[in-house]
Simulated scan of single mutants.
Amino acid sequence: MTNQEFTALVANYERLVYTVCYRLVQDEATAEDLTQEAFLAAYTHRDSCPAGFERQWLARIAANKAKDHLQSAYSRHTLLPGDDAIPPGLSPPAEDLAVSRSETAAITEIIQNLREPYRQVCILHFLKECTPEETALRLERPVKTVRTQISRGKLQIQEQWNRRSSHGTV
């Protein structure tokens, strides 16, 4: 695919790629950034675009970029060191903190009791907040395998949490 053909491709499908990104992330600025990332990735791999399937190819790239963003550590809103200084009067009541801590302990226990290969992956991803890529490197596994194990581990965690909640043991 020539540069001129790629430029025409961008002109034809710019709205489609933006719409796919926006539908997934629900934020205009993020969707614009992801649209640019999707076209950059498409340009980098433009020779692998199947002839006649440009629309589907670009939509898949856009969807993957948006999903990667949603799974990234950046999009998870976590407190950074030093951010835990909550102004007086805005801190939650002591009962809420106690419940939150017991729930955290229960979830940690569920994760630590998962069977392999999900236990190590979930400990690194959920408890140590490693990205799927970092987890894959540490465990010397393919990233796609780690993503699948995270997803399946999450389902197991939810099932066990629901069982505990229904029995009142949380």
Rank of each mutant, 00 (worst) to 15 (best):
I123Y: 13
D83Y: 00
K67I: 13
W57L: 02
A59V: 04
P142S: 07
N12K: 14
E133S: 11
L139A: 04
L97Y: 02
E133K: 13
A29S: 09
Y18S: 04
R60Y: 08
E116Y: 10
A11D: 09
I150W: 08
P93T: 10
K67T: 12
E129F: 11
D83P: 00
D27Q: 14
N113A: 07
E28W: 09
L40C: 03
E109A: 15
A66R: 05
E140I: 04
L9V: 13
L124C: 10
E54C: 12
S151P: 00
A106V: 05
E54K: 15
K65P: 07
P132H: 11
V143N: 01
D96W: 00
G52T: 08
E133I: 06
V10E: 05
K65E: 10
Q112Y: 09
D83Q: 12
K65W: 02
A136Y: 01
V25F: 09
R147H: 11
A98D: 03
L80M: 11
A105N: 10
A51P: 11
A29N: 13
L16F: 02
P50A: 14
T35E: 08
Y43V: 07
E95Y: 01
A42E: 02
I61F: 13
E54I: 11
K67V: 14
V17L: 09
Q149H: 10
A41Y: 13
P81R: 12
L16W: 01
T131D: 00
S72V: 04
D84E: 14
A8C: 05
P92Y: 01
E134P: 08
R147A: 05
G89W: 00
L40N: 10
S102M: 03
L70V: 04
E14Q: 15
G89D: 00
D96F: 00
C122N: 06
E95L: 12
D33C: 11
P50F: 10
